[in-house]
Design a protein around this nucleic acid. Structure first.
Lengths: 119, 119
DNA sequence: TCCTTAGTTCCGAACTTTAGAACTATTGCA
DNA sequence: TGCAATAGTTCTAAAGTTCGGAACTAAGGA
């Protein structure tokens, strides 16, 4: 198994970031990782939006997120821990991840079965 | 020629928007349209970042931007005029397009031949 | 009417993504 | 140690997507 690749902040590209976030499964994974203080294992996402994801596909999704620079992954014993690189990304593209997280919240609220959301 | 499709603001999805902006040619086109007060014709983009784009490809790129809800296109005589839907998108995903435009500026400044950029 | 300009559609070749099967890497336990 | 279990990766073929040339449509002159 080849070592994991994490691009440096200066090598981040908008295109790669947007490509990584152009898939609904990766959007869910990244939104959850961004919203979580503790790092997440890959297999926490074997079921996403009530859909089972084969683990080879999941592994590819994590690779895309990692190589776009959105997450950092590190093996911890038998599992892989993943956390968001938001703070680093903010240095180069300030506000981008926050805008994404906000937009994702709006979208997932709109998607949920209609129940009048009170103020 | 079938009539042009423009999704309503409520039908916009983050995935479609990010997919549209995951291609360097579309990023350039959209960044220029966002930064421009007057609407642009498609053929203003037959050359992007010093690369010639075949017009069938360009037509597909505009279709992707249009169907993601990023631009509005309207035929005006022999040409098609395109403008940004930023104000509408802001209603649903506030700050998203601004964050993109800012990030694109950072990235294109970094790409330009090194000349010490003074304050 | 015919020409020109601007953009679209068709369609095959090139590229990318998906997911099953086989693999590797680490841990725990006899 | 050896072996099983768990977690994730790699390989690969089939399915899906994108690119771009050729043929098309649509509008505006001369």
């Amino acid at each position: 198994m080849r070592p994991l690749q994490h691009p440096s902040v200066d090598d981040l590209t908008l295109e790669a970031i947007f490509h990584a976030l152009s898939d609904p499964v990766r959007v869910e994974i990244f939104a959850q990782i961004v919203g979580c203080a503790s790092p997440q294992g890959c297999s926490d996402f074997l079921c996403v939006s009530n859909k089972d994801i084969p683990k080879s596909t999941l592994s590819q999704h994590f690779k895309v997120l990692r190589e776009a620079g959105l997450i950092r992954s590190e093996r911890k014993g038998v599992e892989m821990l993943n956390w968001s690189r938001q703070e680093e990304i903010d240095k180069r593209f300030p506000g981008l991840i926050t805008a994404f997280a906000k937009a994702h919240k709006v979208q997932s609220a709109a998607k949920r079965p209609r129940a009048t959301r009170s103020a």
